[in-house]
Every structure is written in C-alpha cells, then in structure tokens.
C-alpha cells in the first residue's frame, strides 16, 4: 500500500462563538494515499467539513478554533507550519471544491484570471502559458466555449458550469490532494452525476488523492476506495468501500445504509430513517455518542467510549467502534 499523502490523527477541534462552544471533532482521524479516493460520510453537522478543512486553517472567520492532534501533508507537520508556509500548501498542495459554487466564487472577480494566477504561481508557468492552461482547464472541466468563459463573472454561468469552473480552479495549481466538500449538494440532480463523473475522471487521469465528503451513498459506491463514517465528531467505522457498504458493522452505518432507497446491503430493510437526532456536541458525555439512538445499547455503552477495533484480516483495515455488535455477532477481530 502506498504511504498516505494527507494524514490526520487524534484530531480534536473545539469551536467557540460568542454564544456556543462546540467540540466539532472529538479524537478523530483519516488518511488518504495518492491515487486513492476516500469518502467521508455522516449526517449534516457530524464534523466532516471541520475535520477535513480545519487542519488546513480553512474554517470561516468569526469562529475561534482550538485544534489539537497531528496532521501531515506529504510527511510534513501542517500544524506547526508558519502561516506563510501553510498558505502556500493550501494554494498548491491542496485543491478544494466547495458545496455551493454560487457563493464560493467571488462575484466581483472574473473566473479565468483566477485560474491563470494559480497556474502561474504554483505550476511555474509564464503569464501567457498560464492563460492557455486556464482555458484548457476550463475545457477539460467540460465547460463549452472556454475562451469566452475565461472572461466571465460567476453570475454569468449556471450552477453546474460554476461548479466545473470551481473544479478547474482547484486543479489549476496541480494539487496532489483534491478535497471535494459535498460538491453536488447544491446542484440539480441531472448535473450531479456529471460533476461526479468529472471528479472520477480527473482522479483517474492525474492519480491524485481525492477526499469526497458526501451524503450520497450512491456516489460513495461509484467513486470511493475507502470510506470513513463520522458520527458526532467521531469515526464510527472505516474501511474499504466494499467492506463498509456491503458488510457494515456499526449500528449507525447500518442505519445510514438502510435509510438509502435502492441501496443493496445485507442489512438494508427498505427506506428507513434513523430515529432520533445526533447528540448536542456542546455537552460532552462519556460513552458511545450513538447510545441515545441505538437499538442495541447496553449500560456499558454509556460509561466508556468504544475504541475503534480492527476486524478480520483484509489488506485494507476495517475498523469499527462498537464492541457490542462485534461480540454479539462473533466477528473476528484482527490479532
């Protein structure tokens, strides 16, 4: 297996606003290797965005952030970097695609020149080459008449075209890790599939690492090599896409998959929402975060946080944080 290129461990992120303090990420981690697609799934508010973008310093202003743990990009410790070095890393090493292209692109700036600037600064091209590169990036992202679109403002493009432009912008610096944070949530259903296909194609052609944050289990099954399931700021289950999607162990993962229409898994019982709501991340209690919504809850669940335990002997580690199911179903653990 290739060594990870972006790797986060033991991450704790507390957010403070004047009104609330939230533990958005509670000792969680993930890693992704070149050429690999990691999907991060979980309900809205489970900490997917904060966990992935927080270590890069990409959380919105106006929130005080307290962040602990380790995060390495290409082996280098991100969290101890100078602000200037971290800025450079964000610009060149990482490419980010955001959820809503309409608000993520600056309404006052033309699209093309932003791409050209990235190519010039980070791919070392001359001004003229960079302009050509920008046009060909727009074309590659599936934007018709890219020469014309180069000089356009965001309001002159449709949502789908804008997300393609956003992808082109993310790629302009030739990043090694592409982070797509719910890249299709704000788009029409017909466009969603096209955008996912584009990300998949880029991933194949460039062999870069992709982190796909999504609620779309269908997208996960098509694109992902590995999946991490996040619940209330903690990783409930992680493993290869095949393991997690076809042999989920954690009750939350099973519930999540069961709530997806048409998704075939051994445990799918038709369309069913998981009853209840996630715990408030403002009050930290010991024990399993899923306890209040779990059918299988036992008293021990509420006293100790269940550790992530590696299952089976597969090459891609499958880890689950639920000792109850492991014991009840006699699942073989690693070692």
């Amino acid at each position: 297996m290739t060594a990870p290129i972006y790797e986060v461990e033991g991450l704790v992120i507390d957010l403070y606003t004047p009104s609330v303090s939230v533990r958005a990420v509670d000792v969680a981690g993930f890693h992704v290797a070149p050429g690999e697609t990691l999907a991060i799934v979980g309900e809205s508010g489970s900490g997917k965005t904060v966990m992935t973008l927080g270590p890069l310093g990409l959380l919105p202003e106006g929130v005080a952030v307290d962040l602990r743990g380790t995060a390495r990009a290409d082996g280098k410790d991100i969290l101890s970097m100078s602000p200037a070095d971290l800025s450079r890393l964000r610009g060149g090493f990482f490419g980010v695609i955001f959820q809503d292209p309409m608000s993520a692109l600056n309404p006052m700036l033309k699209i093309g020149p932003q791409l050209a600037r990235q190519a010039q600064l980070y791919a070392g091209l001359s001004a003229e080459e960079a302009r050509k590169e920008a046009v060909s990036l727009l074309a590659r992202s599936g934007i018709p008449d890219p020469e014309d679109r180069y000089g356009r403002y965001p309001h002159e493009l449709s949502g789908g075209m804008l997300q393609r432009a956003m992808i082109a912008l993310a790629l302009a610096a030739r990043p090694r890790v592409l982070i797509a944070d719910e890249p299709t949530t704000a788009l029409d259903a017909t466009v969603q599939a096209q955008i996912l296909a584009l990300i998949r194609q880029i991933q194949k052609e460039d062999g870069i690492a992709v982190i796909l944050i999504t609620h779309d289990i269908g997208a996960v099954s098509v694109l992902a090599d590995r999946v991490a399931v996040l619940y209330a700021g903690q990783v409930a289950e992680e493993g290869s896409a095949v393991d997690v999607l076809t042999a989920p162990v954690h009750p939350y993962t099973r519930g999540l998959l069961a709530s997806v229409p048409d998704f075939r898994s051994d445990h799918a019982t038709g369309t069913r929402e998981i009853p209840g709501i996630p715990p408030s991340q403002t009050q930290l209690e010991p024990g399993c975060r899923f306890a209040d919504r779990c059918d299988l809850v036992q008293s021990s669940c509420r006293t100790h946080r269940p550790p992530l335990v590696r299952l089976g002997a597969g090459p891609v580690p499958h880890r689950v944080a639920c000792p109850v199911v492991i014991a009840a179903e006699g699942i073989v653990t690693h070692d």
Binding site: L58, P83, R88, G91, A104, N106, M108, Q118, Y122, L169
Partner: peptide
Amino acid sequence: MSRPFATTGFAKGLTRRAVLMREALPNIA
C-alpha cells in the same frame, strides 16, 4: 471575510492580508 468566497481565497493560497485586499475589498465597492 466571513463569506464562502473568502474561504475560497484562503484555499487559493492567499494570506489573510491578500484575501482582504484582493477578495474582500472589491466586494465593498
């Protein structure tokens, strides 16, 4: 500075001062 496009500015590798001057300032015009 608290809008998503400012976050995009940071993601483009701009320093905070550059995000202020290049991304936020045109928006106050």
